[in-house]
């Protein structure tokens, strides 16, 4: 029976705790410029029930954890697409998003999207029709389609 109980940790940072203690001060700083990221597409698998999403719906799903039956996915903080996505969606930088997510989790109100690196995220999109992710619009994987686009500031 207990095997049906699922355990989750909201971020992957616990797994890296010991490593983090050693590397926290010299880790992978976000080096790439988010402003240099082109259009960002919110993508789903071709057979997803989501047809189009408004900006408010994307905000509700990725920022407020109003996910319904879907599973939003995050890229790592080191990927400039993530910083650009949240800056365009919510006008919030890395520090602000960390604080906001912290509030969401520790009020019991929700949890952040699952974080996957790019290959794992593309694999999850291919395997899960409820997955929702964001990717550079210029390079969408086969079998996926865009349901919203966030353009860079002019």
């Amino acid at each position: 029976m207990c095997s049906r109980l699922r355990w989750t940790i909201s971020s992957d940072s616990l797994r890296g705790l010991l490593l983090a203690c050693l590397l926290a001060t010299c880790g992978d700083v976000v080096a790439a410029d988010p402003a240099a990221v082109g259009a960002i597409a919110v993508v789903v698998r071709n057979d997803s029930s989501i047809r189009l999403m408004t900006r408010d719906e994307v905000y509700a799903m990725f920022v407020l954890d109003r996910r319904g039956d879907f599973h939003p996915l995050d890229l790592p903080e080191s990927d400039p697409t993530r910083a650009a996505f949240y800056m365009r969606l919510a006008q919030k930088n890395l520090t602000m998003m960390r604080a906001l997510r912290s509030k969401l989790v520790f009020t019991g109100a929700g949890r952040p999207p699952q974080q996957l690196d790019m290959p794992a995220l593309i694999g999850r999109l291919a395997a899960d029709h409820t997955a929702v992710a964001y990717l550079p619009a210029s390079d969408l994987p086969a079998g996926t389609r865009s349901v919203a686009v966030l353009q860079p500031s002019p």
């Binding site: 029976m1 049906r4 109980l5 699922r6 355990w7 616990l14 949890r111």
Partner: peptide
């Protein structure tokens, strides 16, 4: 059947 999902967070 299903005991749901447990999530552990901390600060």
């Amino acid at each position: 059947g299903d005991f749901g999902e447990l999530r552990l967070d901390g600060y």
